[in-house]
Amino acid sequence: MRKILVGVKRVVDYNVRVRVKPDGSGVALEGVKMSVNPFDEIALEEALRIKERGEAAEVVAVSIGPDDAQQQLRTALAMGADRAILVKVTDAVDPLVASRVLTEIAKKENADLVILGKQAIDDDAAQTAPMVAALWGRPQATFASKIEINGATAVVTREVDAGLETIEVDLPAVFSADLRLNEPRYVKLPDIMKAKKKPLDVVEFASLGVAADVGLKTTFVEPPKPRAKGIVVKDVAELVDALKKKGLV
């Protein structure tokens, strides 16, 4: 296969506990550490492994985000992506908009495979991979924990609620990476230096002819209701007593 496209989303780092703004307009993002969405790192790692096995020629990382998302794309290039594309937007876009953008690029690039994270850890929507597959009219294999490329087809093992499901799809296709697909590599310093010289194209969102508004409006953002404060019991006897009193054991 010639080309694998990988989605790279700039998100709040997974170690940050986000705070909701008091006016309910959103979450406070000023000065917060940003990273590559962890599931996208897994997606990229898988693409790189496929390429390293000689089953793909090129890995292209794509992000949709602000100028600063170039940092995350540089990380992707340092991991081993051959080149990167940033589709520049000022505000966060709905997954349907992101899917339309990625589909446009998949078509333009003539991609043989698109690998995305199963969800982004900011909006937790888990929509983009199936949406791209639908808009592109291609197969999808979401929640992948094992990917085997066999020429024009691929066999994918998926983490589903009942266990592990295996499906076979024709390529091109869209896969979404689950946690146990692989363990992403660490970036080494020389690779960071090398990544600075790799091509990173910036594309204006408006040039793609995709509508930015799909009609879904966020009207309010609030913190979750806190749980009532619990107690620390001194031993097992007190714990079992408390649970018996509540009729739980």
């Binding site: 349907l96 929507a125 888990a126 929509q127 199936p130 597959a133 639908a134 929640f143 998926r158 799909v214």
Partner: peptide, 23 residues
């Protein structure tokens, strides 16, 4: 919003050309 629903409904939404509300 199970593995089944998360796999299926975004594909449905995209074919309908509408956004989805997850979870």
């Amino acid at each position: 919003s199970t593995a089944f629903g998360k796999d299926l409904l975004p594909r449905v939404a995209a074919l309908l050309g509408v956004p989805q509300i997850s979870d």
